[in-house]
Each structure stands twice: as C-alpha cells, then as structure tokens.
Write a protein that binds this DNA or RNA. Structure first.
Length: 98
DNA sequence: CTAATGACCATTA
DNA sequence: ATAATGGCCATTA
C-alpha cells in the first residue's frame, strides 16, 4: 500500500456511523488539498471492510460514485441513518474533523 | 520517462 | 436544470 492510500484510509476510518465527509475534506486533512481526485481513486480500490468508504460523498452533497454502484452506496448510508433527499445528503449529516 | 485513467471540483454555456 | 471544459493528482500501463 502506498503512503497516500494509507493516509486516506486512516482519515476515512474516523468518519462515524451515520455521518459523511467529502473527497475534498479528506484531501485537505491529509495535507494535500488539491488531491481530491486521487482520493476518489484510492477509495475506489479499497476492499477492506474496516474502511467505511461509502461515507465519502461529493462536495456538492451528491452521493458520488461507488464500486458496486450508487444504489448500493445510498442503501448503506440510509441504513446507518444518513438522510438523502433528491440525491443530496442533508447538511446535518456532515462530520467535521476539527 | 510519457500517456492515460478516474468514486472530483468549479466554472461556464 | 444538464453538459461540457479545464484543472488537479496518485496510480497504472
């Protein structure tokens, strides 16, 4: 695993159940604010159950992609209590890494 | 080394 | 509202 990938997964693991973060936020937290696209790539390759990669969405609050399809991603999120209406995640569901 | 590829983002039409 | 565009960056061929 590359150091970049390790960093992305480490941050992703901190997102609590029922909350979400964005590709952009993760990129910023790992100190590479412009690597948001690469973050998506790293998460795409994730196969570890311990990394809740479905909790990462787009900055415009859209759900974003998922290896097994957007449908599956939304189902998982809703199952943990994340509210999604008209394809957008509620503002109150965003986790802040302060 | 170069070129292509995305689970992105912001802007523009 | 959707579609296209240019930019960004780690990874892979």
């Amino acid at each position: 695993m590359s150091p970049f990938q390790e960093a992305v997964y480490a941050v992703c693991r901190r997102i609590p159940r029922g909350k979400v973060s964005t590709y952009s936020d993760i990129a910023r937290v790992i100190g590479k604010p412009r690597a948001f696209r690469a973050v998506g790539n790293a998460l795409n390759r994730n196969r570890s159950k311990s990394v809740p990669c479905h909790r990462v969405v787009r900055s415009d609050r859209g759900t974003g992609g998922f290896a097994r399809g957007r449908k599956a991603k939304m189902a998982l999120l809703r199952k943990e209590g994340v509210n999604i209406t008209r394809g957008k995640v509620s503002e109150s569901c965003f986790f802040r890494f302060v």
